[in-house]
C-alpha cells in the first residue's frame, strides 16, 4: 500500500460546555500520513493547539480498536465517517486526500446533550438498560451452563444483536434521533435466549417507556441506523422489538 501525506482543512464544532453556545472553528493540519487513524490526526491537531497555548478539542475515545463504543464523531455528514461498518477510531486517513476539507460535528440529539466540543452525554443509554436490559439472576443462582441447550442459530442470532457497542451512531444518523436500533438489539439479544423468557414482556414495555422518557424519537424505518452502525446491527432487530412490544401489550402485561 502506497503511503502519502496530506494537508487538510478541518471544520470542528467547539463548545465550552452544555450551557454555552457553540460554533465551528477552522483549523489546518499539515503532513498528515495516510497511515494515521482519524483520531491520531486529531492528536496531531491537539498537540498543535497545545503548542499554540490553546485548549485542545475534547472528544470521547478510549480503546481505539473499535469495540468500546466511546468514539462518536459525525464526519462529513456521516456518523463515524465514510467507511462502512467502521468506528471513528478505526477510520484511517487513507479515506481522505490532500486538500480535503473535513467537517466534524458531535452527535446531535435532544437525548444526547453536548458536554464539551465533540463529547456528548450518552447516559440515556445506561438508563434504558436499567429499565430492563438484563436478566434478573443474582450471583450464585445459576445452574450448570450446559443444562440449557440453545440451538446454534438462535445463539448466533442473539450474539449478532449483542455485538452492539452502544456508541449511539444509530441515534446520530436517524432523522428522528430514535434509539430503536440500540434498544432493539438488547431486546432481541435477550428475547432470543430461553434465559430471558421470564422477563420478556415487562422488559420490552419498560425499556420502550424509558426510551420515550429520555427524549428519543420514533422509528420511521428509514434504515439509516443500520447503514451507519459500525457493527452492522440489522434493523430486523427493530422488527423483533415491534413484535415483542405487540405481544407484550396485547397480553395485557403491566409495565413496572
Amino acid at each position: 500500500m502506497e503511503h502519502y501525506n496530506m494537508n487538510l482543512t478541518l471544520k470542528v464544532w467547539r463548545q465550552q460546555n452544555a450551557q454555552s453556545q457553540g460554533a465551528f472553528e477552522t483549523y489546518s493540519v499539515k503532513e498528515i500520513s495516510s497511515e494515521m487513524s482519524f483520531l491520531e490526526m486529531f492528536d496531531v491537531l491537539n498537540e498543535q493547539l497545545i503548542h499554540e497555548g490553546k485548549e485542545p478539542i475534547t472528544f470521547d475515545h478510549d480503546c481505539r480498536e473499535g469495540i468500546c463504543g466511546a468514539c462518536s464523531m459525525h464526519i462529513n455528514g456521516q456518523a463515524h465517517g465514510p467507511w462502512h461498518e467502521t468506528t471513528t477510531c478505526q477510520l484511517h486517513m487513507r479515506a481522505f486526500k490532500d486538500g480535503d476539507t473535513i467537517v466534524v460535528e458531535p452527535w446531535r440529539a435532544a437525548a444526547f446533550p453536548v458536554i464539551k466540543d465533540l463529547m456528548v452525554d450518552r447516559t440515556a443509554f445506561d438508563r434504558i438498560i436499567q429499565a430492563g436490559g438484563y436478566i434478573s439472576v443474582n450471583t450464585g443462582n445459576a445452574q450448570d451452563a450446559n443444562n440449557l441447550p440453545i440451538a446454534k442459530d438462535k445463539a448466533d442470532e442473539s450474539f449478532a444483536a449483542a455485538t452492539c457497542i452502544g456508541c449511539g451512531a444509530c441515534v446520530a444518523s436517524c432523522k428522528n434521533a430514535s434509539a430503536s436500533l440500540f434498544l432493539s438489539a438488547k431486546v432481541a439479544h435477550l428475547a432470543l435466549l430461553p434465559q430471558g423468557d421470564a422477563e420478556r414482556k415487562t422488559r420490552v414495555l419498560n425499556m420502550v417507556e424509558q426510551m420515550d422518557k429520555e427524549g428519543f424519537g420514533a422509528c420511521t424505518n428509514t434504515g439509516a441506523c443500520e447503514a451507519e452502525c459500525p457493527k452492522g446491527i440489522s434493523i430486523m432487530n427493530i422488527r423483533r422489538l415491534n413484535a415483542e412490544y405487540i405481544r407484550a401489550g396485547l397480553s395485557g402485561s403491566i409495565a413496572k
Binding site: A142, Q143, A151, D156, G196
Partner: peptide, 22 residues
C-alpha cells in the same frame, strides 16, 4: 466453572455447537 454458569444465566451468548451445547 461457576463463572461460565453465571454468565450463561445472565444471557452471555457464548459460541455453541449444533446440539445446543457450549
Amino acid at each position: 466453572a461457576n463463572i461460565i454458569d453465571q454468565c450463561v444465566a445472565q444471557g452471555v451468548p457464548f459460541a455453541r455447537e449444533y446440539g445446543g451445547m457450549l
